[in-house]
């Protein structure tokens, strides 16, 4: 009876996994098909013959190297900004005692609920006045001012570290900044990894930001280039799926490399309730 039940669970788990995974598999399968195979009814799951050239064609059309370089630049700057700024603000909220701290932290948490649409237009007007439209700056400079979500995440993590570390260092004459840089930062590496991975994913995927600020083709990010490819050309499903697969690949690789961190981050975001 017990055996039968666990067999049933396995069957169910496998069936549901297939439902979840199938669209992704279908994306890759389509990306390797020739035109006649794409419109074939009924369709084949395994393409034959395999047309690898779809990838080359698609990547040339969207100017993959340039788009990847632009995206990596924005992503990289955001990672640096978030790791430095969010961590030092989190340190202040988690481990330093000062007047006004609770109030400011409360304000910060409430901004997490603020719809981005409220600040979207005025932020554009500000960046436009600075002459930053059609530069990457609007897409990475804000990261150097810390992001509430990551500040919150890092603060939660810092709260779990014993206070005796700080006290011992303080008695040895270490300044608050010294404690942050020499004691806290090395200890929160796992949490910083979560922040880096989330930042990478967010900015690799970001569409609205580049859509608003980047209109010159040589500045397109991958997401924007992919969307323009779809809207400008006659629908070429094999190439679209090839480019989509390429865009998805780094995220999947990152997820598998740091699954533990990834899941921890998603779960931690849910613990504040």
């Amino acid at each position: 009876m017990r055996r039968l039940r666990s067999l049933g669970i396995y069957v169910l788990l496998i069936l549901v996994s297939v439902v979840y995974l199938f669209p992704v598999v279908w994306m890759v399968s389509t990306s390797l098909k020739t035109d006649p195979q794409i419109v074939r009814i009924p369709p084949n799951l395994i393409p034959s013959p395999v047309r690898w050239a779809n990838y080359g064609d698609a990547l040339r059309t969207i100017n993959f190297l340039r788009a990847a370089k632009n995206t990596l630049y924005i992503t990289g700057m955001n990672i640096i900004g978030n790791i430095l700024s969010s961590s030092i603000v989190a340190y202040s909220f988690a481990r330093l005692r000062w007047k006004g701290r609770e109030l400011l932290f409360g304000i910060m948490l409430s901004t997490l609920m603020l719809p981005f649409a409220v600040t979207m237009v005025p932020q554009y007007l500000i960046f436009r006045n600075l002459g930053w439209v059609n530069t990457f700056k609007p897409l990475w400079v804000p990261a150097f001012f810390g992001s509430p979500f990551y500040i919150f995440l890092l603060r939660q993590f810092m709260l779990t570290l014993p206070n005796s570390y700080d006290d011992a260092a303080r008695i040895d004459g270490c300044s608050s900044f010294g404690i942050y840089w020499r004691i806290i930062m090395p200890l929160i590496k796992p949490a910083l990894t979560v922040v880096a991975m989330f930042t990478f994913t967010t900015h690799w995927n970001d569409f609205l930001g580049p859509l608003i600020y980047l209109s010159r083709e040589e500045l397109y990010t991958f997401a924007l280039a992919l969307q323009k490819f779809q809207s400008d050309y006659v629908v070429n499903w094999a190439q679209l799926m090839a480019a989509s697969s390429v865009m998805t690949l780094p995220i999947i690789a990152l997820f598998f490399a740091g699954q533990r961190y990834f899941i921890q981050g998603v779960v931690m975001s849910g613990i504040k309730g």
């Binding site: 788990l13 549901v16 996994s17 979840y20 995974l21 669209p23 992704v24 279908w26 994306m27 389509t30 994913t201 690799w204 995927n205 569409f207 997401a223 992919l226 969307q227 779809q230 499903w237 679209l240 799926m241 480019a243 989509s244 697969s245 865009m247 998805t248 995220i251 999947i252 997820f255 598998f256 699954q259 899941i263």
Partner: peptide, 22 residues
């Protein structure tokens, strides 16, 4: 299995939109 269930959620929005159009 947890990984399999989660994979759809990491597909980038733009790629995902194109995938579902197809």
């Amino acid at each position: 299995f947890r990984t399999c269930f989660y994979v759809p959620s990491i597909v980038p929005l733009v790629a995902n939109s194109l995938l579902w159009m197809w």
